[in-house]
Design a protein around this nucleic acid. Structure first.
Lengths: 128, 128
DNA sequence: TTGTATGCAAAGCGTTTGCAGTGAT
DNA sequence: ATCACTGCAAACGCTTTGCATACAA
């Protein structure tokens, strides 16, 4: 993306404004408020270039469509609250996991998702 | 599935014979050797009922289509070879990860995927 | 014989792409 | 005035579903 368009701006604003990773459709919904009439293809094209530029990152949750969030420039993981379904960043990491792999396997990186209940749900569970 | 068909048998055999989680298409390829002419829809219908009966489980890897493996009744993780794209089971586990979560968060379970190169690819890399 | 499971093809769903037209530079 | 970016719609890949037929019981 070389040119600044109102659609592109609205998309990046939507991702930045959200405090959680968003689905492509959620980005469209949020960005449409700022740039009415835009299409889902534009969202995907902008996501692609934002990813290539490293401005955003993809959050893959098991069995879910990909979500996008602003890039944190450090290694981190996610905590998926099974009560409210929100996803939080975890800035800690178990560290070197080479020891878990069988002999002859080389571990280059890893993904970790924690599941459980977040602090606000533990204090006041949301309605089912 | 109430009736025993050669397609259903071939599908379960294929999943059991594989020492790693298989994609639906890989199951079709393997099962076709035993029951020629079968279709992908039959694979999906059988997967669905095997899942409901708890005979197999789904392995979701970040950004990948779901894979299926026989139910292991113990906790385990996966190793995804970035060269050959095969997925292997890891029977070791980093253990309690409660420590990674912020105060007030309760960790009930976790998913871990290791990425790297498997032993056979380290010995003889596949063509790119 | 009965009716479940199958094969085929069409439909869904999320994502990607081709194309003509819009709009940022 | 360019030509990158957009909207639309078609194309895609994976998965699901409708329907007539095959075959396990």
């Amino acid at each position: 993306m070389e040119r600044i368009t109102k659609q592109g701006t609205a998309i990046l604003n939507a991702i930045k404004a959200a405090e959680r990773p968003l689905l492509a459709q959620e980005i469209l919904d949020a960005a449409t408020a700022e740039a009415p009439g835009m299409g889902i293809a534009t969202v995907y094209r902008n996501i692609k270039s934002l990813l290539e530029n490293g401005l955003i990152g993809t959050v893959y949750l098991p069995g879910e469509n990909p979500r996008y969030e602003t890039s944190h420039h450090h290694h981190h993981h996610h905590f998926h609250c099974t009560l409210c379904d929100k996803v939080y960043d975890i800035h800690d990491c178990p560290g070197n996991l080479q020891q878990l792999a069988p002999d002859g396997f080389q571990v280059d990186s890893h993904e970790l998702t924690l599941y459980g209940s977040c602090s606000s749900c533990r204090l006041s569970p949301p309605p089912p």
